[in-house]
Simulated scan of single mutants.
Amino acid sequence: MTSWFETLDGTWEKVWNTLGRGVADAKHPARRPTLATVSPDGWPEARTVVLRSADREAGEVSLHTDLYSDKIKSLRGTPRAALHIWDAKQDLQIRLQAEVTIRSGPETKPLWDKIPDHARQSYGVTPAPGTPITDALAYDKAPDPATFAVLHCTVTHIDAVHLGAQHRRCSFSRARQWRGQWLSP
């Protein structure tokens, strides 16, 4: 029997199944990928985010954020990002490159309406995220749908590395109609 990591098709399936599990299972390692962006002054930035959707057919994933967060400023300047996931149980590293569209306002209301009250606390911090404050708790949280944003990520490239006994690495590119290519690990 062939293991998933021995074929390009198997790896493609594993990548998207892993992303899907991250959306569905709050305890799965793909639930909280690292998002990397470039700041307005050119510095790399990385932070943990929550994966909210993964659509294999469209080649898209999405994340939620506060419209006034630093990542929004960065994405307005450079609307590209990378996502990194490490699944230790599978010995699998997934890196996605994506073009990002920021969505907010009325088009995000159906998603806002589905967010539980306790999670809405992340959207509507005063002062805005990243603002200097006088002490650690000198801020207020008041859920505000006007500050809710969805980062719609159109995946352009996937790099997958299996770090088993024999390392295997491959890539998939939208420009190649998602045909896989083996790479030296």
Results as ranks from 00 to 15, higher is better:
residue 127 P to A: 14
residue 118 H to M: 13
residue 33 P to E: 06
residue 20 G to R: 03
residue 135 D to R: 08
residue 105 G to Y: 07
residue 182 W to T: 06
residue 174 R to A: 11
residue 89 K to Y: 07
residue 133 I to T: 14
residue 157 H to I: 03
residue 59 G to W: 03
residue 180 G to F: 02
residue 132 P to F: 14
residue 16 W to T: 04
residue 99 E to T: 13
residue 108 T to R: 05
residue 62 S to Y: 03
residue 100 V to D: 00
residue 93 Q to M: 10
residue 80 R to K: 14
residue 19 L to T: 04
residue 22 G to S: 03
residue 3 S to H: 08
residue 151 L to K: 00
residue 116 P to G: 13
residue 70 D to I: 06
residue 15 V to L: 11
residue 68 Y to M: 13
residue 74 S to K: 01
residue 113 D to S: 14
residue 94 I to N: 01
residue 125 V to C: 01
residue 76 R to K: 15
residue 93 Q to K: 04
residue 8 L to H: 03
residue 154 T to G: 08
residue 158 I to C: 01
residue 109 K to R: 14
residue 153 C to E: 02
residue 22 G to F: 00
residue 28 H to G: 09
residue 182 W to S: 08
residue 154 T to I: 11
residue 34 T to V: 15
residue 78 T to R: 10
residue 146 A to W: 05
residue 17 N to C: 10
residue 74 S to N: 14
residue 182 W to Q: 06
residue 155 V to A: 00
residue 39 S to N: 06
residue 139 Y to P: 05
residue 150 V to Y: 01
residue 110 P to F: 11
residue 116 P to Q: 13
residue 14 K to C: 05
residue 127 P to V: 13
residue 3 S to V: 02
residue 73 K to F: 11
residue 161 V to L: 15
residue 108 T to Y: 06
residue 100 V to Q: 01
residue 71 K to R: 14
residue 20 G to K: 05
residue 179 R to N: 15
residue 62 S to W: 06
residue 107 E to A: 13
residue 125 V to Y: 00
residue 118 H to E: 13
residue 169 R to H: 14
residue 94 I to Q: 01
residue 112 W to E: 10
residue 174 R to S: 05
residue 77 G to T: 09
residue 57 E to Q: 07
residue 10 G to Q: 01
residue 73 K to G: 08
residue 83 L to I: 07
residue 20 G to M: 02
residue 169 R to P: 03
residue 175 A to M: 08
residue 92 L to D: 01
residue 126 T to S: 15
residue 32 R to W: 09
residue 94 I to K: 02
residue 60 E to Q: 13
residue 156 T to E: 11
residue 179 R to G: 08
residue 95 R to G: 07
residue 88 A to I: 12
residue 178 W to A: 06
residue 41 D to K: 10
residue 16 W to E: 04
residue 29 P to R: 04
residue 85 I to R: 00
residue 136 A to P: 00
residue 178 W to V: 05
residue 19 L to C: 05
residue 28 H to L: 08
residue 108 T to M: 10
residue 164 G to I: 11
residue 101 T to M: 05
residue 184 S to K: 08
residue 43 W to L: 15
residue 5 F to M: 04
residue 14 K to L: 10
residue 182 W to E: 09
residue 34 T to N: 07
residue 165 A to I: 09
residue 3 S to F: 04
residue 15 V to F: 03
residue 125 V to M: 09
residue 13 E to V: 13
residue 27 K to I: 05
residue 126 T to V: 15
residue 122 S to M: 10
residue 65 T to E: 02
residue 93 Q to C: 06
residue 19 L to W: 01
residue 21 R to Y: 04
residue 17 N to R: 12
residue 80 R to I: 06
residue 162 H to K: 04
residue 79 P to I: 13
residue 49 V to C: 07
residue 42 G to V: 12
residue 2 T to P: 06
residue 158 I to Y: 01
residue 100 V to F: 05
residue 36 A to E: 10
residue 91 D to Y: 10
residue 78 T to F: 12
residue 89 K to S: 15
residue 129 P to R: 08
residue 85 I to W: 02
residue 14 K to D: 02
residue 77 G to D: 10
residue 167 H to Y: 06
residue 140 D to Q: 15
residue 34 T to M: 15
residue 27 K to R: 12
residue 7 T to A: 04
residue 44 P to R: 09
residue 48 T to Y: 11
residue 82 A to P: 02
residue 142 A to G: 08
residue 100 V to C: 06
residue 149 A to G: 08
